[in-house]
Simulated scan of single mutants.
Amino acid sequence: MKKELWFPSSDMLHEVLPKLSTKDLLKVKCVSKGWQGLISDRSFIKVQLKKMEPLTGFFYQGRYQWCDEDYDCVGFIPIERVTTEVHINVLDFLPESIVILDSSHGLICCRSSFPCHVPAIYICNPVNKEWRKLQWPNPSRESCITLVFDPFKNPIDSFTNFKVVIASQNETSTEGDGYFSFDIYSSATGEWRSSGEICLCNHNVLKKGCVCVQGILYWLTDGDQILMFDPQNEISWLIMVPLPTSQFNLTPEMCMGEAEGKLTYVLISEHGLQLWVLKDHFTSQWDLTFTISLELLEKENYLLKVAENLASNCNSGIPWIGTLAFKDNTLLMRVAADIYVYQFETRKMRHLCSLSALAPKPFFSATVVPYTMSLVPLS
Score class of each variant (00 low, 15 high):
D157Q: 03
S269D: 15
C199H: 12
D68S: 14
C73Y: 13
L13Q: 01
I145L: 11
W219Q: 04
K305F: 14
E175A: 13
F7C: 07
W35N: 05
E53Q: 15
I79V: 13
Q36C: 14
S246F: 07
L303H: 12
T372E: 04
N125C: 05
I216M: 10
C109W: 14
M373L: 09
L91I: 10
F344G: 03
S312G: 03
E85N: 14
C116E: 01
I184R: 08
R81Q: 13
G257R: 06
I156Y: 01
E69L: 08
G215A: 08
V165P: 15
S10V: 14
S112F: 11
R132E: 05
R132M: 11
I77E: 01
D183I: 14
L26P: 10
S9D: 06
L17G: 04
E142K: 10
F76Y: 13
Q343S: 14
M228Q: 07
S356M: 06
G106H: 07
N138T: 08
L263M: 11
D222R: 02
L273K: 01
V127C: 12
S113D: 03
G178R: 06
K208V: 01
T56M: 12
G176A: 10
N315R: 02
T221F: 00
T346V: 11
N204M: 11
A336W: 07
C212I: 14
V205E: 08
F363H: 08
A120P: 01
L49N: 04
K3T: 02
L20A: 01
N313L: 09
K299I: 03
S187Y: 12
E295N: 13
Y218D: 00
V127Y: 07
C110G: 03
A357T: 11
D328Y: 07
I198R: 08
S194R: 15
W35K: 03
C314I: 05
T330E: 03
K279A: 08
I108A: 07
E80L: 15
V90T: 10
F59I: 02
D222H: 06
H14R: 05
P370G: 04
W35Q: 01
L288G: 04
Y371A: 05
E295F: 08
V306S: 04
M254W: 02
D177S: 07
Q343D: 10
P377K: 06
F229M: 09
V205F: 01
A336F: 11
G106F: 02
K279T: 12
F7T: 06
D41C: 12
L26K: 08
D230Y: 12
W66M: 10
F326Q: 07
G322E: 15
K348A: 09
Q36H: 06
R350S: 14
R193A: 05
D177R: 09
I318E: 03
K208I: 02
F229L: 04
R63V: 12
P252M: 00
C353M: 10
P370Q: 02
Y71C: 13
K129E: 02
F76M: 00
E69H: 05
P370M: 04
V277A: 00
Q48S: 13
Q285E: 08
S236V: 07
I318M: 02
S316N: 03
A307Q: 13
C109M: 02
Q61G: 01
